[in-house]
Amino acid sequence: MKYQVDKNGFYGEFGGAYVPEILYATVKNLQEQYLGIIETEEFKQEYHQLLKDYVGRPSPLYFASRMSEKYGCQLYLKREDLNHTGAHKINNTIGQILLAKKMGKTRIIAETGAGQHGVATATVCALMGMKCEVFMGATDVERQHTNVERMKMLGAEVHPVRTGNMTLSDACSEAIRDWCCHPSDTFYIVGSTMGPHPYPDLVARMQSVISEEIKWQLEEKIGRDYPDYLIACIGGGSNAAGTIYHYMDDERVKIVLAEAGGHGWQTDHTAATIHKGTTGILHGAKMLVMQNEDGQIEEAFTISAGLDYPGVGPMHCNMAKQGRTQILAINDDEAIRGGYELTRMEGIIPAIESAHAIAALEKMKFKKDDVVVLTVSGRGDKDVETYLKNKEMAGEYGNF
Rank of each mutant, 00 (worst) to 15 (best):
K2R: 12
D6H: 11
D6P: 02
Y11I: 00
F14E: 03
G15N: 07
G15Q: 02
A17W: 06
A17V: 03
Y18G: 00
V19L: 04
V19S: 02
P20I: 02
E21Y: 06
L23E: 05
L23A: 06
A25Q: 13
V27A: 04
V27H: 04
K28C: 01
N29S: 12
Q31V: 00
Y34M: 04
I37P: 02
E41I: 09
E42I: 06
K44E: 15
Q45W: 06
E46S: 12
L50Q: 13
L50D: 12
Y54E: 13
Y54V: 15
R66D: 15
S68E: 12
L75I: 11
R79A: 14
L82I: 15
N83M: 13
H84K: 14
G86Q: 07
G86V: 10
H88N: 12
N91L: 12
Q96A: 05
M103L: 14
M103W: 03
K105N: 01
T106D: 14
R107D: 09
I109F: 02
A122K: 08
V124D: 05
V124M: 15
M136L: 10
T139D: 10
E142F: 12
T146S: 08
N147F: 02
R150E: 05
A156V: 07
V158N: 09
H159V: 13
T163Q: 12
G164L: 09
M166G: 01
T167S: 14
T167Y: 04
L168K: 05
A171H: 05
E174R: 11
I176G: 00
I189H: 01
I189W: 00
P196D: 06
L202M: 14
A204V: 08
R205D: 12
M206H: 14
Q207G: 13
Q207T: 08
E212F: 15
E219Q: 15
E220H: 11
K221T: 14
Y226E: 07
Y226R: 05
P227L: 10
L230Q: 06
G236K: 05
I244T: 11
H246N: 15
Y247A: 04
D249I: 05
E251I: 11
R252I: 03
V256Y: 01
L257N: 07
E259G: 11
D268M: 11
H269R: 15
A271E: 03
L282A: 03
E293G: 03
D294T: 13
E298A: 07
A300V: 08
F301S: 11
F301T: 08
S304F: 05
D308G: 04
Y309H: 05
P310Q: 03
H316F: 08
H316K: 04
Q322P: 01
I327C: 11
N331L: 00
D332N: 13
D333V: 08
E341C: 12
R344I: 03
M345I: 04
A351T: 07
S354R: 06
A355M: 05
A355I: 07
H356V: 10
H356W: 07
A357R: 01
A359I: 06
L361C: 11
V372T: 07
S377W: 04
G378E: 09
D381A: 10
Y387P: 09
K389D: 15
K389A: 13
K391S: 10
M393R: 10
